[in-house]
Amino acid sequence: MTMRTAIGLVGTGLLAAFSALVAYAQDSSEPGGNLRFEGYPGAPEIQVVSRIDELFFYPCDECHATMEPNPDIRELDTFHDSEIDHGKGRIWCHSCHQLEDPNNLITLLDEPVGIDDAHIVCGGCHANREKDWYFGAHGKRLVNWQGERTVYNCTHCHNPHSPAIEPRAPKPAPPVRAGLEREPGAEHEHTPIWESHEVDDEP
């Protein structure tokens, strides 16, 4: 390697490092610039089913446009329930909803995201679940196993204000084989044999 190429290489390297630094400084100067989470490398492409049409109160600013944003934790006397069964008392409305523009959600980094990108907000705390969801080990895929992946968003199955899945009635149990009857216990409760059979007391 000649001296000239060596200097050239070092120079190029320095220049590249400098420009990267400038780019970083620019990014971090404007909030939300390049910080937004764009998914995991290698994760397959997914189509997320929109839920906006199913929301009764959406768009939020139909009411909230005329209201002053109020960050205080308080008893709500309007349509919304102030009991949030999520986060064990750690979170309040604007932990997830953007205070200034209530049509949006907000991440932990104060970036606004749309209602249909709720998984970005959920993933802020539930990162492991979110990763599983991106790769298909959590959540529900629709229609096909092959081809384009269409999945439900987190909030499709989990009510974000009370995310535990509600118990539901099971479908009917399988029939017992013809000619047989169910014994009164999977718990194996039998009457003692000396009670169910007549015992001849006389010797």
Binding site: G136, A137, H138, G139, K140, R141, L142, V143, N144, W145, Q146, G147, Y152, C157, I165, R168
Partner: peptide, 22 residues
């Protein structure tokens, strides 16, 4: 499944507990 659709049990599962694929 040979046409790319999900098995009926997977489609019916309300909690997404079933995962099927190649």
């Amino acid at each position: 499944v040979r046409k790319g659709q999900q098995p009926a049990c997977m489609e019916a599962c309300p909690t997404g507990a079933r995962i099927f694929g190649n």
